[in-house]
């Protein structure tokens, strides 16, 4: 059910994005930061789901809040002539890798035990 919702959302979003008007190059930097922040939220949500402590409110507020905050920070950085967006990228990508590691470990922990079970089963059948 939720997978269908995700797929439909992705397809609809892609279609909207393709037919949406082009963003001026000047603002594409802000958009990129927003995307990184949103992706970070998504990976965080997946990791939370795997840990079984997923909260929809936290996910949604994090998704939009992080995006908007990172855009504001980038804007401030341009006004201050400091590349604050680099800090945002470092933080978000670092967290993305963290979450990816959590996800990976979860599946790695699952996989060998399954294999062993399978092995045991096959040995038993022999």
């Amino acid at each position: 059910m939720i997978l269908i919702a995700i797929v439909i959302g992705c397809i609809l979003g892609a279609v909207i994005g393709i037919y949406a008007p082009m963003v001026p190059y000047t603002y594409s930097g802000y958009l990129a930061i927003a995307i990184i922040a949103a992706l970070d939220s998504v990976f965080g949500g997946i990791a939370a789901t795997l840990n079984k402590n997923f909260d929809l409110k936290i996910f949604v507020t994090g998704f939009f809040g992080n995006a908007i905050l990172s855009i504001l920070l980038t804007y401030l950085g341009q006004k201050l002539n400091v590349d604050i967006y680099l800090a945002a990228i470092v933080v978000f990508v670092g967290r993305m890798f963290n979450n990816l590691a959590i996800i990976r470990r979860y599946y790695l922990n699952k996989w060998p035990s399954k294999k062993e079970e399978n092995k045991n089963e096959t040995e038993k059948s022999k």
């Binding site: 059910m1 939720i2 919702a5 995700i6 439909i8 959302g9 992705c10 397809i11 609809l12 979003g13 892609a14 909207i16 994005g17 393709i18 949406a20 082009m22 963003v23 001026p24 190059y25 594409s28 958009l31 990129a32 927003a34 995307i35 949103a38 992706l39 998504v42 929809l56 996910f59 949604v60 998704f63």
Partner: peptide, 28 residues
């Protein structure tokens, strides 16, 4: 569950819409 599905699909729409807009902008 329905509410969650709707919200998640909305989030996906927003994310992909922005991503594809960005792809297009960068490509062009």
């Amino acid at each position: 569950e329905i509410i969650m599905n709707v919200i998640i699909s909305a989030v996906c729409i927003v994310l992909f819409a922005i991503m594809f807009m960005q792809f297009k902008t960068i490509e062009e």
